[in-house]
Design a protein around this nucleic acid. Sequence first.
DNA 1: ATGTGC
Length: 470
Amino acid sequence: MELVEERPYRFRIERHGDMRVPGLVFASRQLLKDAEKSLEQVVHVATLPGIVGASYAMPDIHWGYGFPIGGVAATDVDEGGVVSPGGVGFDISCGVRLLAADCDRAELRPALLAVMDGLDRAIPRGAGPGGVWRLDGPRQLERILQGGSRYAVEQGHGEERDLIRCEDGGAVADADVTRVGPRARERGLGQVGSLGSANHFLEVQQVARVYDERAAAAFGLAEGQVCVMIHCGSRGLGHQICTDHVREMGRAMARYGITVPDRQLACTPVDSPEGRAYLGAMAAAANYGRANRQLLTDAARRVFERAAGVRLSLVYDVSHNLAKIETHPVDGTRRRLCVHRKGATRAFPPGHPDLPRDLRGVGQPVLIPGTMGTASYVLAGVPGGGAFASTCHGAGRTMSRHEAVRTITDRQLRARLERDGIAARPLSWRGLPEEAPEAYKDVDAVVAVAEEAGLCGRVARLVPLGVVKG
DNA sequence: ATGTGC
């Protein structure tokens, strides 16, 4: 693959073959070493009907289903642009929520282990069913799919600020529950308020460093402060929706005269029955994901209040796996675009009208989960971001799960967490090495490159005190 | 990511 470094930390793949736009990869040479193969996927995405600007890749790019993880692609809705479930990923609405505690590390210290034990009991996690909410039937699931975290708060599981500080005010309006199939509903019914497994986690953290005092103050963060970060998605429901609609679109594609270089890129026009059906179901999964994080917030709050007398207030909640209809300038005119972000975080700049009023001066908070036992970051959107207001989403894997289990033992991992004073509460230690830091890129390098490339600004660095995992 | 496979 021929890459031209057209400016620092921005590499260009010139149009060739069936590419409709170039590829633009925000990265360093070092980060690219681990991602070479996934550049083929950047090229594949550039062939999609209606794509505008470029096929973008963030610094944490790695191999994904059809689209790379760390990919951003925008299509022009009014020019036959397509929507592709592979551009969102299986874990629809996977995202991160950050809560700020009203105490610092020293104040929490005497109660930390009691808090961790409380979370260990209160946070449902791991594969399969189980959640903090037992629904009273399919009608209640529909209310969650329609109302997202707004519904959870209305039911008494949160406060008004939880909605103000959540992307889309806690729920998107365009969910179409009739497009969520029976299997997806069945799977979703028993998993409301659960973490899941793999790289999902709930961490107790402290703010180790503040880079931008003004933004940190607006976000409600200060050095030494305790935080809680929740990283999870839409569980089996989102997974099943992706499976169902990929199959449907794969069958329908030919009718629209669309051919793609990889069947995993199945897509139809946004403005088609299949496109609207997917987006309606995807929006329902987006609401499910927010409700999920809201209910885990509620569970964590009760533990912190009981064990430590500590209150948690929402900093922000943002997804890194979604497609959204947004307006952006393209060649000087404002166009309605379907922006696919897969393992990429929306990062609205200061002044954006969709930001909560008190954040408008500093830009949207961007929440970057690190790997177990490493740092996480709070970033902010900046003017002229360059990839339809998007940035990275995390560390990104370098080792396959298989390779990680083969090379890292659970004893090594356990010793490392103990050495670093991190109280781990895994559901089981077996399989945990899949998520060891060695299996991931260096998150510090990823966010440094994202900032250097002009995609976002660093606000704060967070380090773990305790981690709850599936 | 995932009732960790078709």
